[in-house]
Amino acid sequence: MNINNDLILDINNLVVHYETMEGTVQAVNGIDIQLPREHTLGIVGETGAGKTTTALSILRLIPDPPGVIKSGEILLDGEDILKNSEKKMRSIRGRDVAMIFQDPMTSLNPVHTVGDQIAEVVRLHEGLSRSDALKRAGETLEMVGIPAERSTEYPHQFSGGMKQRVIIAIALACNPKLLIADEPTTALDVTIQAQVLELMKDLRDRLGMSMIMITHDLGIVAEVCDEVAVLYAGRIVESGTVREVFKSTMHPYTEGLFNSLPVINDKGARIKPIPGLMPDPIELPEGCAFHPRCPYAFDKCTKETPELRYFGETHGVACHAYDQDGFKLKRRG
């Protein structure tokens, strides 16, 4: 694969395992992600599909032990970060790549003021003095819609939505090239969700950031993302532009996700949940990991793991069903 300078992030064949006493958890099993500059990629999947593990790999923050990056390369701006020293990594975290975590209630340190927590990252990466950094922290707070005076307050004095804004401020304080948001709105009320999402979109466009949005909410993907990758049991089963994946869904699992959504304008339609549960990541089924739940599964699916193959420029799908001529998902028919 040739190095593409237009890619901010290029992940090739990433494999991450957690080696626990109960056995090896195969969290991520050979993922490829190409993210062009100033694009936003949505990573979709159920809990345990490997979304967060993938994100933490990019920062090399997989808890080790038990987590191990077994193989693959992660090119950030063309440079393989897996080869970096820990010191080099620290200079990337928070400056080039920033991350927003899922739960704002627990992601801020309760014993430091929010201003300090923002200023800290600026001081570290830009070498500002304490007072300059605090001033900058105030500006960043204003940027996310919080009055600068509140920078001397402690996290417990903020509401959940406000805390998430503070976390966004921490992430954006050093103008990162890439922002990873791990379910940034899951823990928030619906009305607050919309505000936070709107804020993130706005800031992304203003600051010209690339972004990875991890979510299980297809609505958020439709609203925020350019591309989308659907993850199942640590593999990408379908990827492409949002339009491709949403309008011409190809993978049975993606279809199942859409069928699980209630349809408003068709009251007669019933929600069709995907039968069964995610497989135990310690004992993944042989062949395609989705085959026990797949209505289209046939012999080959139980034996061989399907590779991602492309239909058109960007639309990839990992499914054996397309070996059969003229195969189509029911949804499209």
Binding site: L61, R90, R93, G94, F101, S107, L108, N109, V121
Partner: peptide
């Protein structure tokens, strides 16, 4: 084990 320790690491702190 708390989340805010992960946040601190993600900032690039030593």
């Amino acid at each position: 084990r708390q989340d805010y320790i992960r946040t601190a690491r993600a900032k690039g702190l030593s």
